[in-house]
Write a protein that binds this DNA or RNA. Structure first.
Lengths: 201, 201, 201, 201
DNA sequence: AATGAATGAGGGTTCATTCAT
DNA sequence: TATGAATGAACCCTCATTCAT
């Protein structure tokens, strides 16, 4: 919470209470629910409570909305992960923290729209991909640092890049089968994902 | 090859040399390349060498093409997996065989369009989802049987369902970063995926 | 008439009785009446008796319709001028024939849409301008040849290019003030235009 | 200059240094460059350095801007022509002076936007057309008076109205092919136009 | 089976204009 | 006087689908 307020204050992300902020939130939800292509700008406008033409005061086109959603999702997630890492002590705890953060992001608990980074990535133009990728690189570096530490500690022995890539797929795909209101909690899910990487947990 | 020829002979899948078969192939490729929504019926028709109206002599609508692609992808993959399993001896070898088969499917080496089962699953109507799911259940049962055997052998200790779900995501996401003409071979990739599940490989 | 029938037979211009031909005619009239920008594709479709989407079976976009109109206007006018020249004996008669032809074209008696060549020229993309210009060059060469002959005969003493350029403006602007149902006939108008160039007519 | 300063002092035209005056200037240039329909109110605002909403403090709507541009163009041109006429002695000199003035106006050397009187005339509502026409009648009367004098002197023998109408077209169309930085000077162009009317110049 | 013209709903986007601040 | 977010109608164009041939 505090971290988001700080990002808003810095101007890094859009104030979620502003018109543009609400627009991004609604768009994120709709894009996640129905997919980018199946979501019309009229859908978004209706959700926000404005008319479709008004959207283009805030964004030059529909793709820019998706790009904005992704940017903020990465920025917020990065901030959340930094905060979580600060409170973890061992590499293993740090890894669990990251997994938990990413799962929270994927399932819409923090920045809505994080799952779009995988599912709708190809909808972005090369320019916008590069734009988001720059932010995502920072995010991914946090992962790689922690994975390196975990590897240093002898808890995993595979290539860190490879582990991360497998993990991205495994976690993002939970969006398709895991439900927050099901039998398993998100924390339990995170624990299991950790066990996938570190067998003697 | 033999297995596919047999499936064709049985009438289980469409003869790839028939008009309908070529249509499915082209559609699979285009759907994989550009996504279902971004692929127009005219794109497919042009690729096949017919006019757009003619497509509807073979399929009642666009979604049915996607459904057809998915059905055949599952059927072919199931057959390939069965053939591969028959030649593997230990549970671990069997698991590697399955991983290899699925990776081959995902990367278009066997049935083009397998990756769509994850990426475009939501484009299917509930009825069509149920239809494909029935075939997919057979496919998934092969996985669960092998995973159970591997677990029985003490090589993994997590819940088989959970392992499979993580694996589905991890493998299908390789579509986004692994390339057949890169440094790593598909066999090496399969080996690494196996190591993710069974640490002392 | 015969000349147009011939152009249709050659495939040089679109059959005015075909769907595309009617579309071009209606578009030409609407573009002339209201201007290109103020004419919507729905206006054109309504006039033709089809729906707006159907237009794009015949033309890739709205500009292509304008381009088509211009192309056919030039082609028809060129043919008409050639036919008229064949029947004129002296250079002066030839010049009068050209003036008459162009006035007929401008006022919609032959190829509807000729006036657009001046009034809506800038609406064409550079590519389409080049396309039409190639046809227009042929048309203009007829003028220059006749003007050269008239000059040779000592009837005018100004630069032929310059005369033609002034004349283009003078004649095309008649669209704004001359009306076929007014006091002056088109033939009289042509006579007067000739007198502007050749004083002792 | 003096004449313009005087018109400003009289309140006949807008002070070009005022906000409204700059707005008219920018609009005139943009309308000339891109056409009325293709120029957006935002284009004009951006050029002036204000926001689009602010324009409507000066003009009730977009058409009123065009109308204002035309009004001022006629008024300024009329003043310039009067001044030029005062310095010409013979009818022929007077005619040359008028031609020169009009060409200067058309090519943006005096009142930017004069060419719009022809090219964008139809964009004006009947009311606004009548409004501008009243001013234009004064302007045209200057032409007719001079043409009558030239005719009186036996230098032309065609109907004055007709001559003027042909000339309007011929001169306004120079906008499409004559360029100030080309081989021919504007004075030479005026001379040639004069020769078109009076052959033994 | 195939054609290809036509459909018609809906897509993203534009833009003159309004109005509370 | 200026702002700028919002309007809402209209724009060009797309596209799955139909159907007479």
């Amino acid at each position: 919470m505090t971290s988001i307020a700080q990002l808003v204050a810095e101007g890094t992300i859009t104030d979620p209470d502003s018109a543009k902020g609400k627009l991004l939130q609604c768009a994120a939800r709709l894009f996640s629910d129905k997919g980018f292509d199946r979501t019309t700008v009229r859908d978004i406008a209706r959700e926000v409570g404005i008319l479709s033409g008004s959207i283009f005061h805030h964004f030059p086109n529909k793709e820019a909305i998706l790009c904005g959603v992704m940017r903020e999702a990465v920025l917020v997630s990065t901030a959340k992960m930094r905060a979580a890492l600060a409170q973890a002590e061992t590499p293993q705890q740090q890894l669990l923290a990251l997994i938990t953060c990413e799962l929270e992001a994927i399932h819409g608990l923090s920045a809505e729209g994080f799952a779009l980074l995988v599912s709708e990535w190809r909808r972005l133009s090369p320019e916008n991909q590069a734009d988001v990728l720059a932010l995502r690189d920072i995010y991914e570096q946090l992962w790689l640092d922690v994975l390196a530490a975990v590897r240093e500690a002898g808890l995993i022995d595979m290539d860190c890049f490879l582990v991360r890539r497998f993990l991205v797929g495994a976690l993002s795909n939970t969006y398709n089968w895991f439900h927050l209101d099901g039998d398993m909690t998100l924390q339990q899910l995170a624990q299991q994902a950790l066990r996938l990487l570190i067998h003697r947990v």
